[in-house]
Nucleic acid binder design. Structure first.
Lengths: 180, 180
DNA sequence: GTCTATATTGTGATAGAC
DNA sequence: GTCTATCACAATATAGAC
């Protein structure tokens, strides 16, 4: 049995991702986690603490992912674009949730997204040797997140499969710039 | 002097874009527009009507833009990527505002963004003749919006200049695929 | 058309029982 | 550790004066 703390955090991610920030009330999250409002507020003294814990979780998951991306056999560019297709992984869900949080003006949410984003761009730049090219690849991945962000609400479960045609275009862009 | 209705709608776009959905209360919007809460609710019988009017405004601006994009001398691909850099145009501001609205689960916001998105992709597909390539270009533009969405909050005024290096990469991608 | 109350509801947070 | 009240406050919306 996972700890109550983790279950509550999972429920928060879930409600943020599926219903949106407006519906992620303490009561709704508590209900989803199977505890009462008071029960939740024992583990997280305020809603703000809950948000902070979520940001910490994303920071940890993003650091893990950066490591995988750096050492990926297919190369960071293909890895980034492929993994930017929403597939419901813990990282995907955390990014979606914190993106929603960030829209409320939460400064930590902004900072953690900005940090991860900057790290991913650095990895692409290191691998591709060209900042404009790295930016183009990064933006394709970000665009996938943007679309997921707009598709995921209102109970639409999304999970887009990695798009082979798009990946082929990315491969080609990268290859074309390498020979120049 | 613009009509009070338009002034209120402008204020709504402003607050949504700069402070976020959470702070876009009827009172805050009314204050920004220089009227009272009751004054606002005379023009828009409910907050929901206000949201609906904003979606209608975006639909009109997006239709205008699609026309410009189709007939752009630089070509739809370069036009789309260049104009996706946030420059504070009425369309930029409306997209940003409705994106924020969409995050609350508003169905009309979702529909209008989805419709514009689909139209832009169609134009790119028609111009480039290759759906995967059109998708890649579209995603680069969407990625720019995604980043603007995260940068714009908390009083950070953004207005990114069009990035010539990125545009050059896009030109090259398009050219490379045309000869094949 | 625009304002000042006021009613109503929803939300975050506290207190204290178990 | 978790629950059931309960409080304090903010937000939408209404009513009626001007």
């Amino acid at each position: 049995m996972t700890s109550a703390r983790e279950r509550i955090l999972d429920a928060y991610v879930d409600v943020l991702g599926v219903e949106g920030e407006r519906y992620a009330t303490v009561e709704a999250v508590a209900a989803k986690a199977g505890v009462s409002k008071g029960g939740l507020l024992y583990h997280f003294p305020s809603k703000d603490h809950l948000a902070g814990a979520l940001c910490d979780r994303l920071a940890a998951l993003a650091a893990e992912d950066a490591q995988k991306m750096r050492t990926s056999p297919e190369g960071p560019a293909r890895y980034y674009v492929r993994s930017s297709h929403y597939a419901g992984t813990p990282l995907d869900r955390a990014v979606m949730a914190v993106s929603r949080l960030q829209q409320t003006g939460d400064a930590r949410a902004r900072a953690v997204i900005e940090a991860a984003s900057s790290e991913w761009l650095t990895i692409l730049h290191d691998a591709l040797g060209n900042l404009d090219l790295a930016l183009a690849v990064k933006l394709i991945g970000d665009g996938l997140y943007y679309n997921a962000l707009h598709s995921a609400l209102g109970g639409h479960p999304i999970t887009t499969d990695a798009d082979e045609g798009l990946l082929a275009v990315v491969d080609r862009i990268v290859a074309d710039h390498r020979v120049s």
